[in-house]
Amino acid sequence: MKPENEAAVQFPSLSANEAFARQLAAAFAAQMDPTLEELGDLKTAVSEAVTNAIVHAYPDSIGPVSLRLRRLPGNVLEITVKDRGRGIPDVAKAREPMFTTGGAERSGMGFTIMESFMNSFSLRSAPGKGTMVRMRKKLTGRGEGSCKP
């Protein structure tokens, strides 16, 4: 599917970039005229995905995290978050509510929230190579306003 607009950034896995990433997603989505609730959902999903890359992908080091935003036909926003960290050995297990390897500071609800706040969600991971999360959400918008070059 050819995007009508897109943006991509890469940043190091520093926790200060959690806020940066969700604000960037919100700024990109603004042109799609989301409702306040949709904007909250997007920011939450981005925060979860990027936090996972920061906390779990590189537990003892700093590594690259990439965020790509694409506006697809039908006012659909696609968010892709990728890292080149340690990967997930059992993806089905990781997606279960309350499952966490992060101890008392984590809730194990990140994937559950991404899945329920977005319309589609896919997770791919290879141990030792990295993880990719791709999510899409159709925004209500006003229908018109496709981007003109």
Partner: peptide, 13 residues
């Protein structure tokens, strides 16, 4: 003004 699942861990704690 914003909270993600980190807030859940705070509440449970």
């Amino acid at each position: 003004s914003f909270m993600d699942s980190s807030g859940i861990a705070i509440v449970i704690h």
